[in-house]
Design a binder for these strands. Structure first.
Length: 502
RNA sequence: UCCUCGAUAGCUCAAUUGGUAGAGCGAGCGGCUGUUAACCGCUAGGUCGUAGGUUCGAAUCCUACUCGGGGAGCCA
């Protein structure tokens, strides 16, 4: 397609004839003018066909262009205020259908989640999904560029793994020539070994967790980047995480501003992601959960949300009235749709309100020694204006490899990064136990089979050094930075409990 | 594994609370010279998730199951 021009380049060809190749995003044929919106992978643009002597032959072709038909069209780009995006293609001199499309399932109206998920292979043609996956692509590239730029070596870790990792209960079992192996849930232990060869390393790939979680934060297959550094201390790992997250945010603000705006993500709250992030010890987080501020936050939530529901109820009543008195059919339709939206909002608010007492109870009765729950994380993140590092968790709730704090052996030198606005944990990291005897003791304390960890213990036998790192979940990061309610939109083909098609 | 909500036309939802199953979108046909989820008219489209039960009568009530949403636990 030597003569092909992309929609994004149209502004450089104003006034001269070009040929576009793409799909029909929208078609609105009228009596003598047809509006066809082309989608070509780079963007969308409106094409306008007016019926006259020269266009007679293909005007009928254009009128037959159904949603998602592939076609080529030749015409002249012009600046036009009435067109979405300000540019449209006019004076059409050719229009040919390449592949027809009949009864495309995803129509321009509302669809339910279950339906869209079954159409995922088509769904990501839709505008919003398209923007999200573009942002994901930038985030993935920003991750690689950051670590490569900081002198980290990429180390690819295996996906087939023996039963090592953070917990055996969440592993996917695979038959490996009659031997039982598992899909990797982390590359960390392998990357630690490579760290002793290259000093600064990272792995980046898919990981698998057989958690039977049906929530908006969980996938069974997700991507994780895990850097590891030798000869470092906890502060340096925190700084690395901070710089890393900020660089990813800066990158999408630079490269994907249009996409961010198109999906309605608030730019200001992304610009507010600046270092230093807050640092909060677990013990202080517990205090905070018990304190008056947490209680106040939830009480305010309760009054605010109750008021919102009151407002929605009034709105629904009004809409029902206006729906009854409306004369035009479309006015009734509009009212019905608004009622539906308001009802959905109300249901969600009611659910949130119902959960508040539980969350208050959980926070107030939180005991030193247990892990922070989802609601606790949300409270902590909302009491801060930036991402928060929560550090030094009790050793009992954390993995065996985390370094025991030499000043307080009840806790380990670890951290979670909690994203603002309730997006939850996006990073989990720690210093790794470098002392052979303590590590061996902890492997035994976790009832893990020591023989599987001989190679890992070797790292402590042959020139052990203080080292640490973290793992960042790509999809949770995409959800946070895009402001998405659900993680399933952050990855082209989400794998979740009970979902494997397409 | 547990709690909770749901399943009605291809899609999104109604059905006055147990009494003849309805609307919009989409599809088909016709009309319209500037549309932005276009608009106007007409047409077709249903075993109310499955299996039982209660009842003169069930989309509506009861039981079980299947599938899906949200959440807990666990986690990135």
């Amino acid at each position: 397609m030597k003569d092909r021009i992309y929609v994004t380049d149209l502004k450089n060809h104003v006034g001269s004839s070009v040929t576009l190749y793409g799909w029909v995003a929208k078609a609105r044929p009228t009596g003598k003018v047809a509006f066809i919106t082309i989608r070509d992978g780079s963007g969308t643009c409106q094409c306008v066909l007016e019926k006259n002597e020269t266009t007679e032959s293909f005007f009928d072709v254009a009128k037959k262009l159904s949603q998602e038909s592939s076609f080529t069209i030749t015409g002249t780009p012009c600046l036009e205020e009435r067109a979405p995006g300000g540019v449209e293609v006019r004076d059409i001199t050719a229009c040919n259908i390449i592949g027809e499309s009949a009864d495309y399932p995803i129509t321009p109206k509302a669809h339910g989640v279950d339906f869209l998920m079954k159409q995922r292979h088509l769904w990501f043609r839709s505008q919003r999904q398209w923007h999200i996956l573009r942002i994901r692509a930038t985030i993935v590239d920003a991750i690689r560029q950051f670590f490569n730029g900081e002198g980290f070596k990429l180390i690819d870790t295996p996906i087939f793994a023996p039963a090592i990792g953070e917990g055996a209960s969440t592993l996917f079992e695979v038959d490996y020539f009659d031997e039982q192996v598992f899909l990797a849930q982390t590359g960390q232990l392998y990357v630690e070994a490579a760290c002793m060869a290259h000093d600064k390393v990272y792995c980046f790939g898919p990981t698998f967790r057989a958690e039977k979680s049906k929530t908006r934060r969980h996938l069974t297959e997700f991507w994780m980047v895990e850097p590891e550094m030798a000869f470092c201390e906890m502060d340096e790992v925190l700084e690395l995480a901070e710089n890393f997250v900020c660089s990813v945010v800066q990158r999408i603000l630079k490269d994907n501003r249009d996409d961010i705006e198109a999906i309605g993500r608030d730019i200001a709250s992304l610009e507010a992601i600046q270092k230093p992030f807050h640092r909060l010890r677990y013990a202080d987080a517990v205090e905070m959960l018990h304190g008056p501020k947490a209680k106040e936050l939830l009480e305010n939530d309760l009054t605010e949300k109750t008021a919102e529901i009151e407002g929605l109820n009034n709105k629904i009543t009004e809409l029902e009235e206006s729906g009854k008195t409306a004369k035009k059919q479309w006015q009734k339709e509009k009212a019905a749709q608004d009622i539906q939206t308001a009802r959905e909002e109300r249901t969600e608010l009611e659910e949130q309100i119902a959960n508040i007492p539980t969350h208050m109870k959980l926070a107030a009765e939180f005991q030193f020694g247990s892990d922070l729950g989802g609601s606790d994380e949300t409270i902590i993140s909302r009491l801060h204006d930036r991402p928060v590092f929560v550090t030094h968790y009790p050793r009992e709730v954390k993995a065996f490899y985390m370094r025991v704090d030499r000043d307080d052996d009840r806790v380990v030198e670890n951290f979670d990064l909690i994203a603002p606005q309730g997006y939850g944990e996006v990073i989990g990291g720690s210093m790794r136990e470098e002392n052979h005897d303590i590590l061996l003791e902890r492997i035994k304390a976790h009832s893990l089979p020591v023989e599987n960890f001989e190679w890992y213990l070797d790292l402590r036998r042959y020139g052990s050094v203080p080292h640490g790192g973290f793992g960042l979940g790509v999809e949770r990061t995409v959800a946070w930075l895009c402001g998405l309610k659900h993680i399933r939109e952050t990855i082209p083909y989400p794998r979740m409990l009970g979902k494997i098609y397409p």
